[in-house]
Amino acid sequence: MSGIPIGESPLSGNSLPGGNPGPEPAPRVMSLGGMAWRRFLRNPFAVAGLVVLLFFVIVALFARFIAPFDPARIDLLTSNLPFGSGAHILGTDELGRDIFSRLLYSSQVSLLVGFSVAFVSVFIGTLIGAVSGYFGGFVDTFFMRMVDVLNSVPLLFLNILMLAIFGSSFVLLICILALTSWMGVARLVRGTFLQLRETEYVEAAKALGTSDWRIITYHMIRNATAPIIVNATLMIGGAILSEAALSFLGLGIQPPQTSWGQMLSNAQAYMLTDPLQAVYPGLCILVVVLAVNFIGDGIQSAIDPRRKVRRPRRRWGH
């Protein structure tokens, strides 16, 4: 972690330059996390992403109170209303369901899928990567061939195949997406662990008789947290996109539950009469995923400032 100034210990520095009389305030100590957080806050894109994501989280949490209509309420008398039709702000779809309310409720599905898939797959990936990297040998070969197998089939195909075989429910969708997206994290954690395995502090822990499990979960994982967090953040966006894609194809979220992807496949059928209907859900997906990706990039450069500093900027060319 060279290059990161560690805050002075309160015990070592007892006099500040130009010391004021009276009780001196203790020199400010900052944790690594605190410094990363400050760097994160200085990145306007990351902060904007965070604000947008928080906005969507709040919308999803309070959808029930914000939504003017029941998103599943069918009313054929008020079907296919255009943008700005009285109480139906964004109009209604072919079954008379309020589009605005459906958008609000869909945010619940997208965020829930995004966060749970990221959480579960990061958990699986970390576990497998850690075990492979730490033990090596047969375990490693076994899991890495598993990664190869999963990487040799288009993941969208694999997801569709599994949904076709096992049927689609909300929980199953999350499981299937998580089971097919842990490979990146596993590779990453494995790589880190292969390096860490040779370090002195791990040797020392082993010599002291620390159990393998404790070395992995207590001593080594900490050194891999930064890239894992970045990966997890970016995975939220990927999962939201996958859910949207599968629902768009009719294999993901099923009615009466609603999701942005499902709304898009609905809207495609009414492109001619109401082209705006296709705009809103896609825009929501785009904005949420952009926000999540900005946050991920922000975290990346906050915890690894060496990358941000880069080479000196120089102009050259002809």
Binding site: G237, L241, A244, A245, F248, G261, L264, A267, Q268, M271, L272, P275, A278, V279, P281, G282, I285, L286, V289, L290, N293
Partner: peptide, 23 residues
């Protein structure tokens, strides 16, 4: 790059259809 990574491709396709084919 940012748009390409965050945009649902099928949505982009639908928008193109609406603009260049229908409109």
């Amino acid at each position: 790059s940012y748009l390409g990574f965050a945009m649902p491709t099928f949505w982009f396709g639908i928008l193109l259809q609406e603009l260049f084919s229908l409109k």
